[in-house]
């Protein structure tokens, strides 16, 4: 695809290809033979490219990656990126990813889901996954609308947004995923923008490299159903956190303050801290992944003795 070619060229120019490779990975290695079914102009295209680019930059091969998808327009992406994939139930991507990561902690696990999926029906898992700090990366495709059900209000929809299910406007305050992730104890919290894919790709790369649970709230225009939060809307409001002098990513209070901003919208890494990895505290997998343990003929003689 032409866009892939452009991005590959871009990466060559920025010198990323000079890293040691298993072989010359390109974005095309992550393409499937299915063409994306998103609306032309959908923010998903930008995130899709950014993610593939991050994989190439990190020198990861398709079989070394597991992406667990939720249900929604973003979840349909399962068909368009070639890696191991589990297209889970609506809202249930995080626990599936958690189980898979615990079964094989050598896998690079990425979770893809929308705001309805992760901040609505699956919100409980979001909070608890932040608490756990497994080494995984969660990309919340936040278009502030239910796209795949054809335009219902989502938990991140702006107050007053009129949709088919809220003809008089949304009455609730929108949920703030960045603030929630910070409060729940995520060790890496960022926000990206689907309209700036190279910058987004850099954030994704850093998120995957981060040792711990990394969360990226990705602002994503839905050109079909959300006429409020458009590309123009974001273009005027967005600024980059790494352009703020002395911004300290280890300062939780500062991160919280920035996450509360409304007039201008910060993107970039809000918060990053080293916390003990969940999987590092499991003796069972100290020496090898759970999946590599041999299970034929397990001796339960001693265990039976307990029952006398």
């Amino acid at each position: 695809m032409y866009l892939d070619y452009l991005i590959d060229k871009e990466m060559n120019r920025s010198g990323n290809m000079s890293r040691k490779k298993k072989y010359n990975l390109t974005l095309c290695d992550f393409n499937t033979d299915r063409k994306p079914t998103w609306c032309p102009g959908c923010g998903n295209y930008g995130i899709w490219k950014s993610l593939k680019k991050a994989f190439v930059n990190l020198n990861l091969e398709p079989h070394e990656i597991l992406i667990v998808y939720g249900v929604g327009c973003s979840g349909n992406g399962a068909n368009f990126i070639k890696t191991y994939a589990f297209h889970a139930l609506h809202g249930r991507a995080l626990p599936v990813a958690t189980g898979a990561k615990l079964a094989n902690h050598k896998l690079n696990v990425v979770i893809v889901g929308g705001d309805g999926d992760g901040a609505g029906i699956g919100l409980n898992h979001f909070i608890h996954t932040c608490r756990r700090n497994l080494n995984m990366t969660y990309l919340l495709h936040d278009n502030r609308i239910f796209g795949l059900t054809a335009g219902h209000a989502s938990p991140t929809s702006a107050r007053g947004l009129k949709t088919k299910s809220t003809p008089s406007g949304v009455l609730e305050e929108p949920l703030n995923p960045v603030l929630l992730a910070l409060a729940a104890g995520a060790s890496f919290v960022a926000r990206g923008y689907a309209g700036d894919l190279l910058y987004l790709s850099e954030i994704i790369k850093k998120a995957i490299k981060h040792k711990g649970f990394s969360f990226i709230d990705i602002l994503q225009p839905c050109i079909t159903f959300n006429k409020q939060e458009t590309y123009e809307f974001y273009r005027d409001k967005i600024y980059r956190l790494d352009e703020i002098q002395d911004y300290d990513v280890s300062d939780l209070n500062e991160a919280i303050n920035r996450s509360l901003e409304k007039e201008k919208i910060p993107v970039g890494i809000f918060y990053k801290v080293d916390r003990p990895l969940y999987e590092d505290n499991l003796k069972q997998i100290e020496r090898k992944p759970l999946v590599d343990h041999i299970i034929t003929d397990i001796d339960i003689n001693k265990l039976l003795n307990r029952y006398y």
Binding site: L94, P95, G99, A100, K101, L102, A103, L290
Partner: peptide, 16 residues
């Protein structure tokens, strides 16, 4: 709900 989905994830990744 998390329980069964974790079990699914673990099984998908290859463990009983």
């Amino acid at each position: 709900i998390a329980v069964i989905n974790m079990v699914l994830g673990a099984s998908y990744a290859g463990v009983r």
